[in-house]
Design a protein around this nucleic acid. Structure first.
Lengths: 240, 240
DNA sequence: CAACAAGCTGCGGGTTTACGCAAGACGGCG
DNA sequence: CGCCGTCTTGCGTAAACCCGCAGCTTGTTG
């Protein structure tokens, strides 16, 4: 049994290496990659079916890497090991996991014990192991309570990228007015109004810009989500 | 001699602990704090004059902590040890360092050797040690070439927060038109036009929102900068 | 001092946003 | 089938935004 570790911090990498050795005596080879690009390559070369993946990496982040790896071999088992439980990450991951795949999401703040347990559960028992904190987000996000619809999230990303209403309409195949409807709906959910209102119409907010910032502060968006969205946008612009 | 380590990742914390022991035999006590708040408290209690500080921490980030520590005791020596060299961080740090203080900025990707050298230079020799990569940014940022003026940066933050032109004018004591002038200037520098232009006026960008995103992607802004700015904004709103 | 660059300001107008109102379209559900 | 909620779309308006033009105030320089 082989395990591939994709993680850019050397300290965390060696920590993971030890944890894998300790938790999985049946593992005879551990390979390390220090960024997403190398990780993809090694995964391909070694046909390794067991991966521990950091999410936030400079060169190519874990979500990107996982997506291409899963595209090639959907049965690969991946344990995501991340510092954060931003909704942006959680949404990003659950968007790419193939049907029925075994995967896990463990926070770096978890204990040694929990990490080792997760390693065994996923790699040996083919179970999904999701950190409870992350799990909470997932429910809220995919459910409806206070969560964001895909279409709301979509338009959030679009204005974050700086598209005009018209451009969004064209991109998503909607009318101008529909786009604006969704925007209002978004503003509503993000509570952009009240924070603005106060008493006088003195210092009202620019709703569009404010929405993006609020989303950021609430970790609905983060750097890597933006980066991904920007890449998709450019791609779309290519295809006119 | 006492050294205080403020860092939320346990792995990195113990690594730093070892590095301090190895580099500074004259150091007899090492104290650890796992977030900014605790860091401030310990710095006060121990009157420790030597601090190694992580920048990105969940509870209270390094810049905030350093600011209050320096406010109380400006001669404190602080070595910032960070994962990133975002312009937002660099700008944040150089905004708060007191006149003539000895401080340092080393990236986590630096070698053991370099870290130990920096520790000695700052704590023993009272020299400033700035990672060359960071140094580059500083020059560009504070100089003029392709860099951003304080007023440009200021207005960038303001629109990022979602303020209207009018609100910005009121906050900064300018006329509406002046605010818009600065905006144009900002759009210019961020190259928001060309990326929009293309050939037809088909899919033009919303300049305001686009500017924020571009700034984000270029790491002129980041989460912690936004967080700080938001706090300042609220404070300002209090004072009407 | 004259000349010039740089920043602030008002005016005016074209474009984009935000949003109320109302008329369809689609999908359950009793 | 008819009723109802959700989603989409068009029309129209007030506000906000983007920006060219031109007059003023500074600070700098020869």
């Amino acid at each position: 049994m082989k395990v591939l570790i994709v993680e850019d911090d050397p300290l965390h990498r060696s920590y993971l290496h030890e944890a894998v050795n300790a938790a999985l005596p049946e593992c005879d080879t551990v390979i390390e990659a220090e960024n997403g690009t190398v990780g993809e390559k090694l995964a391909r070369d070694h046909k390794s079916a067991h991966i521990v993946m950091d999410l936030q990496m400079a060169n190519r982040n874990g979500i990107e890497a996982a997506r291409t790896i899963w595209k090639e071999r959907p049965e690969t088992r991946i344990l995501f090991w991340s510092n954060y439980s931003d909704e942006a990450y959680v949404r990003g991951v659950s968007r790419i996991v193939p049907d029925g795949a075994a995967y896990g999401y463990v926070l770096k703040s978890a204990s040694d014990e929990r990490l080792k347990l997760a390693l065994r559960s996923i790699f040996i028992e083919s179970q999904c192991v999701i950190d409870r904190e992350v799990r909470g987000l997932q429910q809220k996000s995919l459910g409806q309570t206070n969560g964001f619809t895909d279409s709301e999230y979509e338009i959030l990303v679009d204005i974050a990228l700086g598209l005009t209403d018209r451009a969004i309409a064209k991109r998503r195949g909607l009318s101008l007015r529909s786009v604006q409807n969704r925007l209002q709906q978004l503003y509503d959910k993000l509570d952009v109004y009240q924070s603005a209102g106060d008493d006088h119409e003195d210092g009202r907010f620019n709703l569009r810009a404010r929405a993006v910032t609020v989303a950021f502060l609430r970790k609905l968006l983060n750097y890597s989500a933006l980066e991904r969205a920007e890449a998709e946008l450019l791609e779309w612009l290519e295809g006119k």
